[in-house]
Simulated assay, not measured.
Amino acid sequence: MASQPILLFDGDCGFCGRTIEIVRRTIQPRVQFVPWQYADLAALDVTEDRADREVLWISPVGGKVYGGPRALSAVLMCGRRRWWWLGLVLRLPPVNWTARGVYRVVAKNRHRLPGGTASCSLPAHMRGKPDC
């Protein structure tokens, strides 16, 4: 298991890639960013379906896996000090309930967002050459 947390994201999605770059620059979390397409999913105890559906946080302690807004909360809490409080708030009800709904909408529509293309909306096994 890695000594740092791992954040799995869709490396074929332009929207996801651009978001990761923004996170790296502004939040500067102590985490390894890994496109799920290049990860050993079995070793991380993650299915391809889940990795394709949501961003995933894999804890270096016990290998716990958190997805969606909970993963985003963990990224914020491992970033620069000024972001920690936002990560904490994102875990609290009713903020976390709202965050789950917003996350689902964004994830299902990422092909419509800046950097996304129609192939971003296809399941991984149906994608040809990545173009998003």
Rank of each mutant, 00 (worst) to 15 (best):
M1T: 06
S3D: 14
Q4R: 12
I6A: 02
L7P: 12
L7F: 10
F9Q: 05
D10I: 03
G11K: 00
G11H: 10
D12K: 09
D12W: 05
C13R: 03
C13F: 02
C13K: 01
G14S: 01
G14Q: 12
G14P: 04
G17T: 12
T19I: 09
I20M: 10
I20D: 10
E21M: 08
E21K: 00
I22F: 11
V23P: 11
V23E: 01
R24S: 07
R24M: 05
I27N: 01
Q28R: 14
P29Y: 12
R30F: 01
R30A: 15
V31I: 15
V31Q: 13
V31K: 08
Q32K: 14
Q32S: 09
F33C: 04
V34G: 00
V34H: 08
Q37C: 00
Y38S: 09
Y38M: 04
D40P: 02
A42I: 05
A43G: 07
L44T: 04
D45N: 15
D45P: 06
D49N: 04
R50I: 04
R50D: 08
R50F: 13
E54N: 02
L56W: 00
W57I: 11
I58E: 07
S59T: 07
P60A: 08
V61Y: 06
V61L: 13
G63M: 05
G63R: 06
G63A: 05
Y66V: 12
Y66M: 15
G68V: 07
R70K: 05
A71M: 12
L72M: 15
L72A: 15
L72V: 15
L72R: 13
R80L: 15
W83F: 04
W84F: 14
W85A: 14
L86V: 00
G87V: 02
G87K: 02
V89F: 03
L90A: 13
L90F: 13
R91Q: 14
R91D: 14
R91S: 04
P93T: 09
P93R: 05
P94Q: 07
P94E: 12
V95A: 02
N96Q: 12
W97Q: 05
W97V: 04
T98L: 14
R100T: 01
G101P: 03
R104N: 08
R104K: 10
V105R: 13
V106P: 04
V106D: 06
K108G: 09
R110W: 04
R110P: 06
H111D: 13
L113I: 00
A118H: 08
S119C: 13
S121M: 02
S121A: 12
S121L: 02
S121T: 03
L122V: 03
P123E: 14
M126E: 14
M126V: 14
R127T: 05
G128F: 00
G128V: 10
G128M: 10
K129W: 09
P130N: 14
D131P: 02
D131G: 03
D131T: 09
C132P: 07
C132H: 05
